[in-house]
Computed example of a mutant assay.
Amino acid sequence: MTLGQSIAETRKRLEPHYSDGEARALVREILFRLKGWTPVDIAVKADEPVSGFIQSKISEAVDRLLRDEPVQYIFRRATFYGLDFTVTPDVLIPRPETAELVDIIVGDHSGQSDLRVADLCTGSGCIACALARNLPFAEVTAIDISEPAIAVARENASQLKVDVDVRRDDVLALTPPEAPLYDIIVSNPPYITQSEKTSVDANVLLYEPHSALFVPDTDPLLFYEAIGLYAVKALAPRHSLYLEINPLHAEALRDMLARQGWHDIDLRRDTSGKLRFAIATRTS
């Protein structure tokens, strides 16, 4: 069987479960992860034979995809902000929206160096590592309560050769410091309410860690309240808190941050037009 024939067969198996575009993207990802082939390589090698071993690995990956398992967990790899991360079912798969948040932070601090950064609810460490790579000489701390997530974040920092201090702590119980510790605090905490589960894709609901996704219907701002109260003391004056948020609770979040004493609270939309980010500044 040639590579071209293998690709056609693989797409045929995937397309009843995925759209044509998704099937094409998944085939490209499978071949990249198995062989390191780019789309150009795939085009050049279309008439070359595929070994039985590689075909069996492709078939195995497709079997798992048809059970809704994310391709990132199948190969334990995800690309985020131009970097290649280890991901396991102990951590969320990095999303494009989160990369937009990193973009905002990097853009806001262009030309600055030696910034002190805290990433709360770090998960895989994708935000912390991306900022460590893109903010010159930044001192980055990453915090999460999950031991397995901490292990993944440390592995990513080591593999990417970035200086990130990964610590285990409960973001819901952080003690505010007596003096400011950071110039940037960022978080993408759990923010999907239990009642929203019915709208969550099967691959997310079945495989990604619920503790990193869901909050009670009765307390949708649970993490934001704790983070805001900590950050208003831990952040240096005239510096900002950056949050990825649930669009359904954006206005309530802004009101809560204002009550905590935050100023210049800016709700921003992602590229799909949803209110996805909140940026709040400590002025004194």
Rank of each mutant, 00 (worst) to 15 (best):
5 Q>Y: 14
10 T>K: 02
18 Y>K: 01
24 R>A: 11
28 R>A: 12
31 L>N: 00
32 F>R: 09
33 R>G: 02
33 R>H: 11
37 W>K: 04
38 T>R: 04
44 V>I: 14
46 A>I: 14
47 D>S: 08
49 P>T: 09
52 G>L: 01
53 F>A: 13
54 I>M: 08
55 Q>R: 12
75 F>H: 01
78 A>E: 08
82 G>K: 05
85 F>K: 05
85 F>N: 02
85 F>P: 01
86 T>F: 12
90 D>Q: 06
91 V>S: 01
97 E>Q: 05
101 L>R: 00
108 D>I: 13
117 V>H: 07
118 A>D: 03
121 C>G: 08
130 A>L: 13
131 L>M: 09
155 E>P: 07
156 N>W: 07
157 A>G: 07
157 A>Y: 01
164 V>A: 03
168 R>P: 06
178 E>V: 15
182 Y>L: 00
184 I>Y: 04
189 P>S: 07
200 V>Q: 06
214 F>N: 03
218 T>I: 15
220 P>Y: 14
221 L>P: 03
228 G>D: 02
232 V>K: 08
232 V>M: 08
236 A>L: 15
237 P>T: 06
239 H>G: 04
239 H>F: 11
246 N>P: 03
255 D>Y: 08
255 D>N: 11
258 A>D: 10
262 W>R: 00
276 R>G: 02
282 R>M: 09
